[in-house]
Amino acid sequence: MSKRVLDINELHTHFFTDKGEIPAVDGVSLNVSEGEIVGVVGESGSGKSVTSLSVMQLIPNPPGKIVSGEIMFKGRDLVQTSLKQMKKIRGNEIAMIFQEPMTSLNPLFTIGNQLIEAIRIHNKMGKGEARQKAVELLEQVGIPRANDIVDEYPHQLSGGMRQRVMIAMAMSCRPDLLIADEPTTALDVTIQAQILDLMRQLNRDLNMAILLITHDLGVIAEICDRVVVMYAGQVVEEGTTREILKDPQQPYTKGLIRSLPDMKAKNQKLYSIPGTVPKPKVDMVGCRFAPRCEYAFDRCFAESPPLYHIGDNRTSRCFLNERDQREVASHDETVIKG
């Protein structure tokens, strides 16, 4: 197996609000290896964005705070890293792109200005040279007339183009890891496919690992090697994309896959999981999915299921998988990969 780039262990990120403590990320462990594309999927409020922002140490504090856990990146624990060191990592070794290309670029500075800034924060480079690099980056992400676009403002570009600019900016320092937080959600389907193609191409050409946050299983199926399913701040299932899509184990994952529209099944009502994601609370009893689960039985409401290890890099958080387990990873311990 190739080298791990990112290894998150038992991460707890909590928000301290007037209404009490909210464990938005509650013991999440996941990892990304070199050159791998890992998808994190889940509904809104499942903690997937908070997980990604925790990696960048961009959780707004207050109210958010990483309470415990470690985020190992190339042998360093980012949770313990100082802000000064973190600035050197952000944008340089780990880059991030966001959901809203429309609002993610500063409207008052030209594309070139913002790209050149990204380049020059981490590289000693003259303005002219950086500008040349900016044009090259724009060409690399497939922007036509890159030489002109450099001097244009974000509002003069379409959403897809802006997302390409964001990717170009993220690529500027050839990071080891790209975190893409719902990069295609705000785009229409054809543009979505182009952006995904571009990301896969960059992943292959530069051997760059990608952590892709999405709520869209279609996107996962398109480019991810591995999938981590999150629900209410926890990882509920993990496996290769093929395994997850063909043979989901955890009832929530099953529900997600059943909710996908099927071209063959015409005139059928689209399946949806009843209910909504519960607001994570401290000291929740029982399985978090139990109230919405069609397989739930008494034990599910009394105890929290641990993450059962049911194969190579394959886990599921459901009592039904107890008999399939190879090794049990308790709730508090790091998951041991077998």
Binding site: M56, M86, R90, G91, E117, I121, H122
Partner: peptide, 22 residues
């Protein structure tokens, strides 16, 4: 609070650039 400020932070820019420029 806006998204583009988060983008600048994610680039690794210092607080001074974030506040006084962007």
């Amino acid at each position: 609070k806006s998204d583009y400020i988060r983008t600048v932070e994610a680039k690794g820019a210092g607080q001074f650039i974030i506040v006084y420029k962007h």
